[in-house]
């Protein structure tokens, strides 16, 4: 017999849990709404194509930060994509045995390393010997952050490839390395591309590891051995400044950042979905 009390408890629990979901959606809507509503006013072609102006002067943009972010994330990808995906393929292909297990666990644990700590690592590795802040150091910090995540996601995607494909290939006398590279990895490729795009999107949003590696730069720079500006560090500097005008710039820059990150994620997800649909 279900008493009224038990019934009420059941409804109350359901309502609380459903309420939790609504509670989680509220900040999301608030963040998105504010970034769009506050950022849109300052968004213009000038904002995307001009250098930042000193305090007091009107106008100016985040062009060097935007380019700097792309430059450093691109450089980081050059390092991290081969290493990360390679490690992922290794994990999927040599899934048994002690060493792969240690590597997998290390990658899992490392994927939670605080990004600020990675900044110190890049500082010790590059800034100290070079005796100056540099875009290269920023890129290395981002790469260290990307490798473990890429390794884990690549592994999972390679594992999704049906065993029968490998068996068929080996049965036809195709050597193992060709089977791995041109059958298994080739089949998982669209998924791996999605994982790479998502990793790039994450790296673009990183601020902490760049603060004392790439530092910042008021001017154009495409030199890897010099300090370089990034969109995220610019947002930080604008946001913590006491000037109302700079706050507005922070919001517009945040809108630009969200648009870039969002475009990357949506492209990644669309790729993944298309592949899914085709497989059906």
């Amino acid at each position: 017999m279900i008493t009224l009390r038990r019934k009420l408890t059941n409804h109350l629990a359901t309502a609380l849990c459903g309420g939790a979901l609504l509670l989680a959606v509220t900040p999301l809507l608030s963040v998105l709404w504010l970034v769009v509503s506050k950022g849109l006013a300052g968004l213009s072609l000038d904002f995307l194509t001009q250098l930042p102006k000193p305090m007091g002067e009107d106008g100016g943009g985040v062009a060097n930060g935007l380019i700097g972010s792309f430059f450093m994330v691109g450089l980081a990808a050059l390092i991290a994509v081969p290493l990360g995906t390679g490690a992922g393929i290794y994990l999927a292909e040599r899934d048994l045995g002690r060493t792969p297990r240690i590597v997998r666990f290390t990658a899992e644990v490392l994927s939670g390393v605080p990004s600020i700590v990675v900044g110190i690592v890049a500082y010790g590795l590059l800034v100290v010997p070079m005796k100056r802040f540099s875009a290269l150091a920023g890129a290395v910090a981002l790469a260290v952050l990307m490798v473990p995540t890429l390794a884990r996601s690549t592994e999972e995607l390679v594992r999704l490839v049906p065993r029968s494909l490998r068996e068929a290939s080996l049965a036809l006398g195709v050597p193992e390395w060709k089977t791995s590279l041109f059958i298994i990895v080739r089949t998982a490729m669209p998924g791996i591309v999605t994982a790479i795009l998502l990793a790039l999107a994450r790296a673009l949003g990183e601020t902490a590891p760049l603060l004392f590696t790439a530092l910042n730069n008021q001017y154009w720079s495409l030199k890897a051995d010099q300090p370089m500006s990034s969109l995220t560090v610019q947002i930080f500097n604008y946001a913590v400044s006491p000037y109302e005008d700079w706050h507005r710039k922070a919001w517009t820059a945040a809108l630009v950042l969200l648009m870039v990150v969002g475009t990357l994620s949506i492209t990644a997800r669309t790729l993944a979905r298309q592949r899914f649909a085709r497989n059906k």
């Binding site: 081969p82 290493l83 390679g86 490690a87 393929i89 290794y90 994990l91 292909e93 040599r94 060493t99 792969p100 240690i102 590597v103 290390t106 990658a107 490392l110 390393v113 700590v117 990675v118 110190i120 690592v121 010790g124 590795l125 260290v144 490798v147 473990p148 390794a151 791995s180």
Partner: peptide, 19 residues
């Protein structure tokens, strides 16, 4: 492949050593 796998361990070692 083994070298790539080892790279993860190298990264881990690098973090500890540099810190």
């Amino acid at each position: 492949l083994t070298a790539f796998g080892g790279a993860v361990l190298v990264v881990a070692g690098l973090i500890v050593i540099e810190l």
